[in-house]
Design a protein around this nucleic acid. Structure first.
Lengths: 152, 152
DNA sequence: GCCTTTAATAAGAATAATTCTTAAATAGTA
DNA sequence: TACTATTTAAGAATTATTCTTATTAAAGGC
C-alpha cells in the first residue's frame, strides 16, 4: 500500500513535468514545491496554510505565487477548489471521483467514495438542461470528536 | 398551481412574523422586504443583487443590513447559503430538499430534485464518522444555451 | 396615541481574501 | 554562455464582508 502510494506520487511528479512541457510552461522550483505540498496534504488546506507550509522550504515565496500556481493547476485539472460553507477556499489534489463530508463544528473535511452513487443514472429530466460533467455530494453533520465535546 | 404558490408564500410571511416574535426580534420593514425579495427570487441571487433589488423599494437600505439579515435568516434555517465555484456567495430561500446544477460557462444555477437519491442509504462506513445531517449534490456542466453559443 | 427602552439601521471605516502592477530574477533554448 | 520570454516577489489595488458608532424606529407599557 505504501509502495503503491509512493509509486503513484512519483508518477504524478513525472506527469507534472510532462504537463509543463506540453503547455510550454516553465518548471519552476516554486511550482514543483507547491504541487508536491498539495499532493502530500490530505487535509484540504487553504491557500494561506499551503503558503506557510511551502515557505518552510522556500522562505522567499510569495502568497501571490501560491494563488497563481493553484489557479494554473486547477485549470489543468490537477487540483480541485473546494468552496466551504465557512466561505474559505480550500484545495485538494485531484485523485479521482470522491465526495466530501464536512463537520459543521470544526469545519474538518473528510473524503469518501460511493460508487453506487457514481454509477447511478441521473434523473432523465436533467438531459434537457445540457451536458452534465461532474456530480459531487457535499454532506454535512457533526463529527465524532465534536459530538464527544458537546456531551461534556 | 399559482394559487398554491401564493398560498404558501403568504403562509411563509406569517411564519416570518411568528419567527421574529418567538426569537424576540423586531419585525422591521427592511427584514420583511429582504425576506420577501428572496422568497420571490428563483435565481439564487448574490448579496449585491439582492441589495439592488430591495433598494428599489427601500432606497436608503444599506448593504450591511442585507448581510446582517441574510445571516439572521440563515441561522434560523429560512435561507441557504450557496458557495459557488466562482467564489461568490449566493442565497436561496429554504424550501425543502433539492440539489444544484451549475453551468460552468454562465454560472447559472438551477435546482433539481432527486428523491431516489434522497432516500438512498449512505455507505455504512460513514456511520463511524459522526452524525450526518444533510447531503446535497452539486452537479456541473454546460447548459443548453451555452452549448448553442459554442457551436456558433 | 405617546413615552421609554432596547434593538436595528445607515454610513462609512476596518478587515480579509484575492488580484494586479512592475521591476528583478530565472528557466528554457540557441 | 547569452538571450528572450516567463515567472517571481513585493507591495499596491480591488472586492467582499464585517465592525463601529451615532441615529432611528419597533414593541410594550402607560
Amino acid at each position: 500500500m505504501l509502495d503503491q502510494d509512493e509509486q503513484s506520487l512519483h508518477s504524478r511528479f513525472t506527469d507534472f513535468e510532462k504537463f509543463c512541457r506540453k503547455k510550454g510552461l516553465k518548471m519552476t522550483h516554486q511550482r514543483l514545491e507547491i504541487y508536491r505540498e498539495l499532493l502530500t496534504s490530505s487535509d484540504h488546506p487553504t491557500v494561506e496554510a499551503l503558503f506557510l507550509r511551502v515557505r518552510k522550504r522556500i522562505p522567499t515565496i510569495s502568497l501571490d505565487t501560491v494563488y497563481r500556481t493553484l489557479a494554473l493547476l486547477e485549470e489543468a485539472g490537477m487540483t480541485n477548489r473546494i468552496q466551504t460553507s465557512e466561505g474559505l477556499t480550500r484545495f485538494e489534489s485531484d485523485y479521482g471521483v470522491h465526495h466530501h463530508l464536512t463537520c459543521k463544528k470544526c469545519q474538518k473535511i473528510e473524503d469518501f467514495i460511493w460508487e453506487s452513487f457514481d454509477t447511478m443514472l441521473l434523473p432523465p429530466e436533467l438531459e434537457a438542461w445540457g451536458t452534465i460533467q461532474t456530480r459531487n455530494i457535499v454532506a454535512e453533520g457533526i463529527c465524532k470528536d465534536c459530538l464527544k465535546k458537546e456531551k461534556k
